[in-house]
Simulated assay, not measured.
Amino acid sequence: MEHGPDNAALWLYELGEYQLCELAGDGHAEHASMLCNDDARPPQDLWLLWTGEDEPRKTRIAELPACPAAINRGRTNAWHCILFAEHPAVHSWEISDPLGDLIKQQAKEEAYRRFDQPDQDPD
């Protein structure tokens, strides 16, 4: 991968042992977490894939093409699926991320607190 790490195994070790699966729901053969993306054309991303919940897990690192799906959000705005091509389950825009939502809400509250503004949703 042109813009990826030189030594993927060492880089993965430095990330630590915890990765969150980016796929929705259960019942898929492998879990997947994007390690890095590449702006190549066609886009290729580096993914960590693993099976099993308990040790020892079977893991692999794979360079996979990006999912081509996108939905229009107005005339000039589109949301692109950030998963890999032919991924199981739904596209990324249909996946809820409770942890991400909590972090976003806490960051918003902290910003309002720091700037001494009432807590109101700017959306």
Rank of each mutant, 00 (worst) to 15 (best):
Q19G: 04
P5T: 06
C21V: 07
C21D: 02
K104F: 14
A40S: 13
D116H: 15
G27L: 06
L48K: 01
D119C: 06
I61Y: 01
G4V: 11
E63S: 13
P5R: 02
P122R: 10
G100W: 13
R60K: 07
P65K: 10
W79Y: 15
I103H: 14
T76L: 00
Y13E: 12
A70P: 00
L48P: 00
K58A: 08
W47Y: 09
P56T: 04
L46P: 01
E55R: 14
D39A: 12
H28G: 05
D54Y: 06
R41L: 10
N37R: 13
H91L: 08
I95G: 01
A8D: 03
A66M: 07
E14C: 08
G52W: 07
I95E: 05
Q44R: 13
N72Y: 02
Y18F: 11
I103C: 11
R41D: 12
Q117I: 11
N77W: 04
P5I: 01
H28P: 05
K108E: 08
A111E: 15
C67L: 09
H28C: 06
A78D: 03
P68G: 09
K108C: 04
L99M: 13
Q106K: 08
C36I: 06
Q19P: 05
F115D: 11
G52T: 01
R60S: 13
Y112L: 14
R114S: 08
D6S: 15
Y13S: 11
Q19K: 05
K58N: 03
Q19A: 09
P98V: 10
W11P: 00
R114Y: 03
